[in-house]
């Protein structure tokens, strides 16, 4: 299982780096060595999904990065509203999650990604203390940080993180 988790983590990094660059014009660097972010000074989005496996992805971004993130995505210089900023983060996690699942599970699998939402701070702590993540990716952004945490629900029989083998 260790190999699959390492693989899932690598996949999260690759997908997140690619989507951050293409959708939000943000360059990111891996920060494997640092501890988790301070979620108190971050905005955290969550998206749940069902399919071959069920679970959720959390994405935390330093609060001070949110205005740039939203302005980049919308392609504007003007200030963005707090609502636009939260909506931008929700779309970002949505695109990351939607690209991540087929990368992990293979393109023959069908997943449904639910509507992302911004987590209130109490709920973040409850999720983090409740169970161990399947994989965590830690990134440095230009002027902030970003953590991506993948949680998988208890897998039923025959369900694993192992990528699907192609059919002969």
């Amino acid at each position: 299982m260790t190999d699959q988790i390492a693989e899932a983590k690598e996949t999260i990094y690759q997908v997140a780096e690619d989507v951050l660059e293409k959708l939000a014009f943000l360059f990111s660097f891996r920060e494997e060595e640092r501890g988790p972010m301070d979620y108190g000074s971050a905005v955290v989005a969550s998206v749940s999904f069902t399919g071959q496996f069920k679970g959720r992805l959390l994405m935390a971004v330093s609060s001070e990065m949110l205005p740039e993130l939203a302005a980049n995505m919308l392609g504007i210089e003007e200030e963005t509203s707090p609502e636009e900023q939260r909506d931008a983060l929700k779309e970002l996690i949505n695109v990351i999650c939607g690209n991540l699942l087929p990368e992990i599970a293979g393109r023959k699998q069908l997943f449904n990604v639910n509507t992302p939402r911004i987590l209130p701070s109490g709920e973040i702590e409850a999720i983090i203390s409740d169970k161990n993540p399947a994989a965590t990716a830690k990134l440095a952004l230009e002027e902030g940080q970003c953590d991506l945490i993948l949680y998988l629900d208890d897998a039923g029989p025959g369900v694993s993180l192992e990528p699907e083998t192609p059919e002969p």
Binding site: E21, F25, F27, I76
Partner: peptide
Amino acid sequence: EMFKIGEKNYAVLKKILWK
């Protein structure tokens, strides 16, 4: 790999054009 200058030049260009 840390520097990725070419990729970054391209990403900055795309952002300016988008804006």
